[in-house]
Write a protein that binds this DNA or RNA. Structure first.
Lengths: 340, 340
DNA sequence: CCACCCCGTGAGAGCGCTCTCTGCGGCAGC
DNA sequence: GCTGCCGCAGAGAGCGCTCTCACGGGGTGG
């Protein structure tokens, strides 16, 4: 069998056709479609009937050409596909974004920029496809955003490392959260506290490490027990192994992501180190990894869904020209479970 | 601080402006942009210079209005956000799609239809936003696609349960794969073979169960040991519990997804049943779950990334009016690891 | 009873691009 | 030397919609 139907079948009905059927002008149909004020109710009804009869859907291209708006925003994910789809963080952020946008007239598109060339992404963003962009997980290397955000409203998840002063963003208070987590370990009487930190080219990685450092400094303790991961379980396991290989005593551990904590747990188990007995552990991220561990992970909770929602809210406000706070900071809380 | 910049800043350069700067007509610029044949090389160069000087990007809305094409396709995911972002299957499919499209001029957008209303999704698809759609994981309840696919090229992942005869799709040979898996268990001398099947409103669930049934029937064995899950680990665990609670002896198990196998493993462990000694297990899906289990899961491998790539390929061909096979079937292979 | 509004409507001018069609210049053929 | 092509460029007509503007008719106030 071969192809049956190149392109769309019957030509789509147009405003013009609706107007003809309803016996009014195009302008009136347009008013009804955009439910603008003050159209004679009877005519409006006739128009609606005609729309239903023709199964009319406004052509987005024409509309956006005429109105210079697209009613679409895009979520740019500069991570590799598999990372995006494995990390519960992204799922929650997207849930928050999609949830907020569902209330509005905006539709969400996504673009995995690792899969397309940067040039293609740029053309997509600047080519009038979207009214604004949301950017998640930008590493410091990504300076392409400076160019784009001059011409298009952009909201970042997390403080951008370049061009921070001019950017709109929503961030979690990583540093205070990490400090609080470390303080908890201190309050449990731990004094040899290590950390598995995140990538140092991302604000979440940098700030969580800084919080840990500040807390230890406040207690006059040594903050040399640091190993780094990339937020994945495997990297957490590797970092844990390196930490143990150092030979220095460790009785407390702050891990910058729940996924890395999961990796660390498996290494601790293979070394017959008990949590929290031998090693009190506090993580960051209150996701399914945190809850699924045994013992369940005491962790820093942050509102990830809220992060997404606030990003979307900020972007829509920006697009519509409403006053917007440039920066939104979301607080964290400590969730006490079994690991510390 | 308040907002700084509603909408885009400077008005975007247009074809007209490029034409003026290059000293040619709009038509010529258009030819260069679409690298159509036969433009005087010198003029073409002048045009390119002008484009670069103005940092010109063609306006998509205008282009698609005039050409009746958008150069964009969308991936529709009718699952809940968290499910999409947790299941490695989706990640791989998307990887395949994005990989293929990266070679083309098409951009990929995604729409999580669970988050938007079906009406919004329909308007998006029919509103001229995209040239075609890819649909993954449609349950039998989803008959909304029939309406859409009349007006827009659509390619499904897996055989659609409604409107199969008219649909373009790419599917994995689930039934033969499941039969082969079951045959392996038979060849290992197992005779009391159970299955944890997938949802019976999805082809993958239906066909894998059918393959298991056929293999057992071929061997003249009983095929009553069936429990159902929804492809998630938790549902696999629950199904395993129900299977064991029946009290009938079981020495072989075919699980319709690696994720469910992971769930089943944990239940087997808690019943002190050893794999493969007490229970030989064969799964379906060769993903990270399968490899991470202990013992590693013997499983049916199917080309998930290839599935995505072939879907994208088929859709693009459909859009461009090239001849296309209506159905593509992808074979499976058995990956022997420790569990059977 | 006339001037003034105001409300609902239609006409019409684009939005930025594509694409057909016409036209112009140069070359080959007779 | 004239006709016929062919190759390349420009003119111009839309694509389907939005939005401003002007208009007509029915109140209201003086």
């Amino acid at each position: 069998m071969t192809h049956r139907d190149p392109g769309r079948a019957r030509p789509a009905p147009t405003l013009e056709m609706v107007a003809a059927l309803a016996g009014v002008s195009r302008a009136t149909v347009s008013r009804v479609v955009n439910d603008s004020p003050a159209v004679d109710p009877q005519r409006a009804r006739a128009v609606r009937d005609a729309i239903a009869a023709l199964n009319y859907v406004p052509n987005r291209a024409a509309r956006s050409l005429a109105s210079r708006r697209t009613q679409a925003v895009t979520l740019v994910l500069p991570e590799s596909t598999s990372k995006v789809f494995t990390d519960p963080f992204f799922a929650s952020v997207i849930e928050g974004i999609a949830g907020y946008l569902a209330e509005t007239e905006y539709t969400l598109t996504m673009i995995l920029s690792s899969e397309s060339s940067p040039e293609k992404t740029r053309r997509y963003l600047l080519g009038g496809n979207v009214d604004g962009a949301l950017v998640v997980s930008h590493h410091s290397g990504d300076n392409s955003w400076a160019r784009v955000s001059g011409s298009l409203p952009v909201v970042f998840a997390g403080r951008p490392l370049v061009g921070e002063a001019a950017s709109h963003y929503v961030e979690v208070e990583n540093e205070p959260g990490a400090a609080a987590a470390t303080d908890l370990l201190l309050s449990r009487g731990r004094r040899n506290i290590a950390t598995i930190a995140g990538p140092q080219d991302m604000p979440a990685g940098i700030d969580r490490l800084a919080g840990w450092r500040r807390a230890l400094a406040g207690a006059g303790l040594d903050s040399s027990r640091v190993e780094f991961g990339d937020f994945t379980p495997a990297s957490g396991a590797a970092a844990m192994r390196r930490l143990l290989a150092r030979g220095a005593p460790i009785d407390g551990l702050f891990v910058a992501s729940a996924q890395m904590a999961a990796g660390a747990y498996s290494v601790l188990a293979s070394h017959s180190l008990r949590v929290p007995g031998d090693m009190a552990v506090v993580g960051f991220d209150d996701d399914e990894f945190a809850a699924a561990l045994t013992p369940a992970l005491t962790t820093v909770h942050h509102p990830v869904t809220g992060l997404g929602a606030r990003m979307a809210e900020k972007l829509v406000a920006l697009i519509e020209g409403r006053p917007v706070e440039r920066v939104t900071r979301l607080g964290t809380s400590l969730v006490l479970r079994g690991s510390a």
